[in-house]
Design a binder for these strands. Structure first.
Length: 266
DNA sequence: AATGGGACCTGCGCGC
DNA sequence: TGCGCGCAGGTCCCAT
């Protein structure tokens, strides 16, 4: 499940690997992942264009092209970008001027590729909340004011704050010792501050370790991310809490599996 | 405003 | 052992 740290890792690696290279050939093995525009326009708009820059906004990757257009890529659940790839079994592959392939793999076919005139006009982008690293603790506290909704689904709401998904929401709440079902507005000032600090700390450390390889995520090189060994609660149902030995609980919250320590998190 | 559900999608793991 | 069902979650969308 690529979240901010995974997408940021891919962004940094793509910046090193493919910026300055030209797209010379495109293979579409599964057209479903191309959401915009038509297949023909997609091919025509990408061929012989140079990759100028790679950006990340929330969990969305943006490749700026020499034509002024941009290729946006959302990895969703099982998307991978692999370079150099092999163009075998990929959903879409791009042969670059290096004569190597950049592969977009996606087992569950939920990923989305778009070729856009203006990525900033995308609804997802217009409605995106602030990046956690662009916020002050005071701003974060204000954002929680009056929000009666449960804190964990709120952290995962991309229009509230962007980049946090199921895994890092669970990990940050554990470290802040906050129960995932607490009403956001009910957190004490101290807890809000603690939560904000732990969100940034968890995301930063996960970036440092190049993400969490659970399920399908891989780095651009094809190597797994190394943050899984630091998970405290995610996917640890029934296993002892590292702090108090109480078995980690899993509940369903807003339709998502939610892991927490019933003793440490209040 | 908040909440709940379904849809998309495939492979895996579980229970019978 | 084999089969079928539920689950995994990012995002959108609809209903209440």
């Amino acid at each position: 499940m690529p979240e901010l740290p995974e997408v940021e890792t891919v962004k940094q690696e793509l910046q090193r690997a493919v910026v300055g290279k030209r797209i010379v050939e495109i293979k579409i093995n599964h057209p479903k992942v191309i959401k915009q525009p038509t297949r023909t326009a997609f091919l025509k708009g990408l061929k012989n264009k140079t990759i100028k820059n790679i950006l990340r906004k929330g969990k969305l990757l943006i490749m700026e092209l020499s034509s002024g257009k941009s290729l946006t890529i959302h990895l969703k659940m099982t998307g991978q970008l692999i370079y150099p790839g092999c163009a075998q079994g990929s959903r879409v592959s791009f042969r670059l001027s290096s004569n190597k392939w950049l592969d977009f793999n996606d087992q569950r076919l939920m990923g989305e590729l778009r070729l856009l005139d203006d990525w900033k006009a995308l609804k997802f982008i217009r409605e995106l909340g602030p990046e956690p690293f662009n916020l002050t603790v005071e701003q974060f506290k204000q954002m929680l004011m009056g929000r009666k909704t449960k804190i964990k689904p709120l952290l995962m709401d991309q229009t509230f704050i962007c980049g946090i998904g199921n895994l890092y929401a669970a990990e940050a709440l554990f470290r802040a010792r906050i129960h995932p079902q607490r009403a956001a507005t009910s957190l004490s000032s101290k807890q809000k501050k603690m939560l904000f600090q732990q969100i940034k700390k968890v995301l930063n450390k996960a970036i440092k370790y190049k993400g969490s390889s659970v399920d399908q995520y891989l780095q651009v090189t094809g190597s797994p991310g190394n943050y899984v060994k630091y998970h405290k609660v995610y996917d640890r149902k029934g296993k002892p809490c590292f702090v108090c030995k109480t078995p980690i609980k899993r509940i369903n919250l807003a339709g998502r599996g939610t892991y927490f320590c019933p003793r440490c998190q209040r």
